[in-house]
């Protein structure tokens, strides 16, 4: 699970966000350190959706927050267009955050329960303008309309009067009022019912087209991620396992972990037998002392001695498909 390689990074004019060798560590006392993210690299072209998948604790949310410099990463660089966010002074970073906005997992707790919807969605505008209240409301009302909330009904209501799906729509409106280029969606549908999840995913696709957004979509469910993403990056314990165009990833998973994730998705078809074999046993190892070599080796059905000794780097398989594994499920092209 190395992912320390950068072979998969693209050179080109349309790359909007480039994350290189990103490392985030948190001290936990007595000199110990949680290695939340250890050298992740990826890039996103303008208008593209990158899916970040992995289990709880794999560092996918930390990666999302590190892009926003919340907190500032321990190492590596995050470039948005021509700007390196990691070296940007705090005040400038704050202004830059209007370009990169975030949507959180729990729609209800991410809205202040004591504020009205009108206030919540207008808040970013109070900081970044326009400062005229009527003008603000015009923008807010227009945005609420776009996310499917009736602005006149919602204006003076509070979050508890809305369902989870509606709260998530309001969160999306709040993220969009400052006209960001990039939106980081941190498990935006994990807390929602399947039926509502579909509404929100469709809404994100519509808004993406309408406003020309670039999305980072973080989730643990590969079925959801696959549907919305152009490219998918699979993470495990702070490292990247595999990155690929999303249809290709589903059709030909090369990393054993990706295959296990795919096998875990419940199939809504009773004629498909539930496979006991694919079940991934055990829990994630501690990120305080991650396994040597490939971090996935302790749970990997294909692990051999080499995996403990040597960390695999990302290698190209074909067109836009890279894997970090010594023994991938499909052959790696010679290059």
């Amino acid at each position: 699970m190395a992912g320390t390689g950068t072979e998969h990074l693209r050179q080109g004019g349309d790359v909007l966000l480039q994350v290189e060798d990103l490392t985030v560590e948190f001290p936990v006392g007595r000199g110990r350190v949680v290695h939340a993210v250890s050298g992740i690299s990826f890039d996103i072209a303008e208008g593209e959706t990158l899916g970040l998948v992995g289990e709880s604790g794999c560092g996918k949310s930390t990666t999302g927050r590190a892009i926003l410099q919340l907190p500032r990463p321990t190492g590596g660089s995050v470039r948005l267009a021509e700007t390196d966010l990691t070296t940007l002074p705090d005040a400038e970073m704050r202004a830059k955050r209007t370009d990169v906005q975030m949507i959180f997992q729990d729609p209800i707790s991410s809205l202040n329960p004591r504020r009205t919807i009108g206030e919540i969605v207008a808040e970013p505008l109070k900081v970044w303008g326009p400062h005229d209240a009527d003008e603000q409301w015009k923008i807010v009302a227009d945005m609420l309309e776009h996310v499917g909330i009736d602005p006149d009904v919602a204006r003076y209501k509070r979050p508890h009067e809305f369902s989870g799906g509606q709260c998530q729509r309001i969160s999306i409106a709040r993220a969009l009022v400052v006209q960001p280029q990039v939106i980081i969606c941190d498990e935006p549908v994990s807390a929602l019912d399947v039926s509502v999840q579909a509404q929100i995913l469709n809404l994100l696709e519509d808004l993406k087209k309408e406003y020309g957004l670039t999305l980072v979509f973080i989730a643990h469910d590969l079925a959801v991620v696959k549907n919305i993403s152009d490219r998918v990056a699979v993470m495990y314990l702070g490292k990247m396992c595999e990155i690929s165009e999303s249809d290709e990833l589903h059709a030909n998973p090369a990393h054993p972990y990706t295959a296990l994730l795919l096998g875990s998705i419940p199939v809504p078809d009773p004629t498909v037998a539930v496979e006991d074999e694919v079940a991934l046993e055990g829990d994630l190892p501690s990120p305080i002392s991650p396994p040597s070599g490939c971090r996935f080796r302790t749970r990997c059905p294909r692990a051999e001695e080499r995996c403990a000794a040597e960390e695999p780097t990302l290698r190209r398989i074909n067109d836009d498909h890279y894997v970090a594994c010594h023994f991938p499920l499909i052959d790696v092209a010679d290059n």
């Binding site: 039926s195 590969l222 549907n227 919305i228 993403s229 249809d247 809504p268």
Partner: peptide, 19 residues
């Protein structure tokens, strides 16, 4: 309900049928 489940077999950006 059945249609609103994202299916892995569908190509990316397949529009989901929300209720």
């Amino acid at each position: 309900l059945f249609r609103s489940i994202p299916k892995t077999g569908n190509p990316k950006h397949t529009r989901l049928t929300a209720i």
